[in-house]
């Protein structure tokens, strides 16, 4: 039924497109390229990524989530927390702090180096060299090369220095994380709840930021009890309110003054609420990785 040929000039450009198989294969080619680049290559590159080596210990990071936190991730997913909360920290770059850890034996040489290369407005005394080591002598040097060049002046004087890598960026300045998130952070997350919006704050590191379980439970039950004017909906369906019996329950939520249930009642978290909080507490990005180096704060 299909007649070929007899094309008119205005059809020449797409003439070949009169054939069904040509349409099929051109679409398939486009799909195959896109599939190759955005499905196959990422899988090849990071799909079998091993756990990271941290401080010389192989397969040390990330830690698997304990049972309750794992269940909590399911509660997080089921209730669509990911709709409003991202779990990824961005970083604009690194700055470097130079820390004097050991002054060595030639203190005068170190003092000279300090007076020559540090803040010219300050006249350092010998006590500055010996007192309270380790001591951050240079803060927020923008490039690694500059920081290394400066610390070299001190190592030449016989002192020992440490270079601290300090990630920077708005997310980090807000205290949401210590460094940017990378693929290795999500190896145990199925699904990875990365999120695309920050209606609420980022939660990548909420376990380090807000470790208090009661705070989280109260926040879930009545967000405005702990965050003024919070836009988060309450999750009262994850709790049961009951009359206080002979002895108040040890599990009951401790509310700030002026909040909570009416007198004589207590709020008990369900297993789901407890699991969710265990999950939130397990969210911490605290390891320095090859692809995202940072100097971890003292534990």
């Amino acid at each position: 039924m299909l007649r070929r040929g007899g094309l008119l000039p205005h059809q020449i450009g797409g003439g070949v497109m009169n054939r069904g198989p040509v349409i099929f294969f051109s679409a398939f080619l486009a799909f195959a390229i896109s599939f190759f680049a955005f499905v196959l290559l990422p899988q090849t590159q990071i799909g079998r990524q091993p756990l990271a080596t941290v401080d010389g210990v192989a397969n040390a990071y990330p830690a698997a989530r304990p049972g309750e936190a794992h269940q909590g991730a399911e509660i997080y997913r089921a209730n669509g927390c990911v709709t409003c909360h991202s779990q990824q920290i961005r970083q604009t770059g690194n700055v470097f702090d130079v820390v004097l850890t050991d002054a060595g034996t030639n203190l005068t040489a170190v003092l000279t180096a300090m007076n020559n290369h540090l803040n010219p407005a300050v006249e350092f005394a010998l006590t500055d060299v010996t007192n309270a080591l380790p001591k951050t002598i240079l803060k927020a040097v923008p490039t690694k090369a500059a920081a290394e060049a400066l610390s070299k002046k001190f190592t030449e004087a016989g002192a020992k220095t440490d270079l601290r890598v300090m990630p920077v960026g708005p997310d980090i300045a807000r205290g949401w994380g210590l460094r940017r998130s990378v693929a290795a952070d999500y190896l145990y997350d199925t699904p990875p709840l990365l999120g695309s919006q920050r209606v609420g704050p980022d939660l990548a590191n909420v376990g380090m930021r807000l470790p208090d379980a009661n705070w989280h439970l109260v926040h879930l039950y009545q967000p405005r009890a702990v965050v003024k004017d919070s836009a988060m909906p309450p999750y009262r369906y994850l709790f049961t309110t009951r009359k206080i019996g002979a002895t108040p329950s040890a599990d009951a939520l401790v509310f700030p003054a002026g909040f909570g249930p009416e007198a004589g009642y207590e709020v008990i978290p369900t297993d789901a609420a407890r699991a969710l909080v265990a999950y939130l507490q397990s969210l911490r990005v605290d390891a320095s990785l090859f692809e995202a180096p940072m100097t971890a704060p003292a534990k």
């Binding site: 955005f38 799909g47 079998r48 999500y186 199925t190």
Partner: peptide, 14 residues
């Protein structure tokens, strides 16, 4: 047959 970690997210975005 789920793949692992952020590769899942990449496929979902794709």
């Amino acid at each position: 047959v789920p793949v692992r970690g952020v590769t899942l997210a990449v496929i979902a975005w794709w």
